[in-house]
Amino acid sequence: MEGFWTRMLLRLWVALILAFLFTPIVLIFVYAFNTSNIQSWPIPGFTTKWFASTWDDPDVRRALTLSLQAGLTATGLALVLGSCAAFAIHRMTWFGREVVSLLFVLPLALPGIVTGIALNAFFSFGGISLSVWTIVVGHTTFCIVVVYNNVLARLRRTQGSLIEAAMDLGANGFQVFRDITLPLISTSIVAGAMLAFALSFDEVIVTTFTAGAQNTLPLWIFGAIRLGQRLPEVNVVVSFVILVTIIPVLIAARLTGGGGTGRVPAAR
């Protein structure tokens, strides 16, 4: 057993690392309640006035609407495409399966800037003007991946004999899907959707290349920080984005049994 001091030092070390990771995030939350619009420590007083002014800011509202539109649509598309792809790959016994599987996962592994530039070039090549739909397409490329990964992992962990047992008991294809397959993979689909939405909601790089004149919330934040304007509102919006991103991730982790079935969105 290690000595008292060793243990104390280890604890201190862990505390320092945690502080390093989370102090900036906590600071943002604190500044969101800052009475002064100048960020200095300690904050002179506590207020919630920035929340009201942020909520009333038409730019923020537009950005929020766009983020929600893009996130929900991309998630919806990813749900359909990702789970269909997972089913197909799971069933397939073809030798090229691993290659196809890799191609599905690649958009998440590719640097966002590559996806972004590629899509941007493709849209201008095709004469497609940038809009909410081009954002949706950009986000769907990586949202598919998390849904696909989650559903495929669940399908692989599900006993194959359950499907056979249901058929054996007289269930036709539709009944097997409705009564057995869908209930068994439903939490993985929900978890995939949550992660996909979280990914989309805080995405910056691909969005930069696929958005036209409109801003999503992260793009609005980015612009505001660059111009050094409305910093208290930025803190409010960032706090909001953090919450909207973290909560689905936590729920998803619970739904999939805490095991690392989903990719951590922060990897992007």
Binding site: L162, E164, A165
Partner: peptide
């Protein structure tokens, strides 16, 4: 079935 294949849900 050998592994019983009971529906867990």
């Amino acid at each position: 079935f050998q592994d019983y294949a009971l529906f867990p849900h």
